[in-house]
Design a protein around this nucleic acid. Structure first.
Lengths: 117, 117
DNA sequence: CCGAGTGTACGTAAGCCATCGAACACTTTG
DNA sequence: CAAAGTGTTCGATGGCTTACGTACACTCGG
């Protein structure tokens, strides 16, 4: 039955992303993560998309790849983001439920406060 | 009766504190203000006391007067604090209702998340 | 009126954070 | 196999924030 004729993308050739348990995130960490304007954009775009739908490079943000990569790391540290490797791409998911359980209302506040206002 | 036998303290001999309208505070400003550990202490102590009950020097924080003064300015800028002069002292009030109207749930979140945990 | 008390402004030093370019590793496309 | 694509890491840089000590201004209590 045509085993291994279809090459699966390597799940993870690089060091897999380190994830923080949202239940153990400090309030200060969460607030700092959400305070940054660039990260607010990321979170909002993630909220509009479905899980694992967006890859890292697909976000409309005014910074370079390197900086963007750092922002993702911060969001992970804050328990806001889960990432998974799929070949060369890295897919993203907003940890909405988990984060909400830890800090009820906080994420919603950021999502609601779109474009300054 | 007995008019001016009791000397009223000068309301304001120095430049009165500048206050920000909570309705116009940016989300980023609010989050940054509340992210700092020292300011979290201030906000929590203020929440436990009544309005105009505490003077600036009465807070139990591990910083000098000068630094403390700066923190109060940040809280004012974030629409979290109202200050009023009474002689040499400056009295404080947490702008709970106003801030809550602007960012529902945010202040409560900080107050609830006492001592790290 | 003099000394203690209260709080701000200024100048400064240290630390942190966002940012970038360049180099790298591996995948995907052709 | 080569070239383009994806994303991370490193080192350097610039700016902002926190912090302190000092000096200042004024009030309050004797």
């Amino acid at each position: 039955m045509a085993a291994q004729t279809q090459r699966q993308p390597t799940a993870s050739y690089r060091t897999p992303p380190v994830h923080m348990d949202p239940g153990e995130v400090a309030l200060e960490t969460a607030l700092l993560a959400l305070a940054d304007p660039v990260r607010q954009i990321l979170v909002r775009e993630l909220a509009q998309a479905g899980d694992w739908e967006r890859q890292c490079g697909s976000f409309d943000v005014p910074v370079t790849k390197a900086t963007l990569s750092k922002h993702f790391a911060v969001l992970r540290e804050a328990g806001l983001l889960e990432q998974r490797d799929a070949g060369a791409k890295r897919l993203n998911r907003l940890r909405r439920a988990e984060f909400d359980a830890r800090f009820p209302g906080l994420l919603d506040l950021v999502l609601r406060h779109e474009g300054a206002s």
